[in-house]
Design a protein around this nucleic acid. Sequence first.
DNA 1: GGCCTTGTTGTGCAAGTGTATAAATAGCCC
DNA 2: GGGCTATTTATACACTTGCACAACAAGGCC
Lengths: 224, 224
Amino acid sequence: MPDAADLASMNVPSRRKFRREGEERRRQDLIEATLDSVAEHGLQGATLRAIALRAGVTAGLIRHYFPGKEELLQEAYATLVGRMTEQAKAALVMEDALPRQRLAAFVTANLNAPIIDARVFSLWATFIGRASADPALAHAHREGYLGFRNEVEAVVAEVLAAERRKADASQLRHHAIAINAIIDGLWIEGSLAGEMFSPGELAAIGIRAVEAELGLAPEEGGSQ
Amino acid sequence: MPDAADLASMNVPSRRKFRREGEERRRQDLIEATLDSVAEHGLQGATLRAIALRAGVTAGLIRHYFPGKEELLQEAYATLVGRMTEQAKAALVMEDALPRQRLAAFVTANLNAPIIDARVFSLWATFIGRASADPALAHAHREGYLGFRNEVEAVVAEVLAAERRKADASQLRHHAIAINAIIDGLWIEGSLAGEMFSPGELAAIGIRAVEAELGLAPEEGGSQ
DNA sequence: GGCCTTGTTGTGCAAGTGTATAAATAGCCC
DNA sequence: GGGCTATTTATACACTTGCACAACAAGGCC
């Protein structure tokens, strides 16, 4: 009968050691590993085994937390969307600032790290590419988009009010759509080719474009 | 020895009939089938068998025209990019028009069908999502992007010259970046949720935003 | 310390993947 | 019409995939 030394020298298949983690922690880790896998290798490369490897567990465990791969991907996407919108809106909670300054801060926040980020963009594009075929994805996107646009519209209304300019609902909506487009477009450019722009350049371009859209007079002494 | 009738009644495996197509035609069909498959089921769903089925051939044939799946996908992406940039620039070939009209026509063309299209957007997003991990994709995108931006910059220069406004290279570049962002952002919104906008609405928003960016006085009598 | 729950591992499986290659046949040339 | 060629089919193969399930052990509880 082989003893311990024999077992070791014979390379007998030995079961891997593991730790039991809290449920919430494991789920988070698995979702994060999923997002990493998707960002790095796309939806096709995000296999259960690859995800498990990243999360430091074996593939079988995933089924203990998620009914199937699809549900894992959906939860991962929901997490991503939630994180993005949360960060984007966070820049608006400057209570004691002029509307115009809040708007500028909002644009600046959305055109710098961590919102401008190749990994996040890759994830966004990968998932949104399935939106036209997947109603659940399309709906999740629209919710986020309209929420974002409403935030923009609210700030725009404040800015125009502070300038004593009147704007009806239609004009307000058009401004919000245009400003949203400016931010989205610059976000894409920055995420895809950040090194083509100097630091702060995109934010400066964005602020100027947004203020032009609203017909605000250029800042005094605003060089560069 | 079984005769023809026996063969038919016995359900003997019979080889499928086929036609020999010209090489270029087959390659085009395979690429189109690839784009359809990717748009409908994503990169993961675009299997060689699914592509071949769409193209009306069997999977083995693909290897006769492409070294492997990767090359097929690359050629498909190149085809897509080529088609997109070609259509986008086509609106600029109005020789006998005022610069400002050419710019407006350019914006309008880029914010209506067939450029605003859910299938094209899905393809763009799916492929671009891999750009940060795939240098070939990233390069192809940057080429297309810079080409597009240069076109924009040239028109902007004409418009400003016609208005007797002087702009240095840096300002020109910033205008081009901003205008490109406006068009991209509205293109995304329209492609993802076209029915949220009335016909021509996106183009109108785009033209106004672009002209505001350039500091052009609003058109006389330009209602809505 | 021993037990019990359940988080975790490891293995197995059927379906599907890209690729390789042999066999068939469509269509041109004479 | 009869070959010749290379387009096309069909089959095989090694590998991967998501999922199922049995065995195991980590760690709380008494």
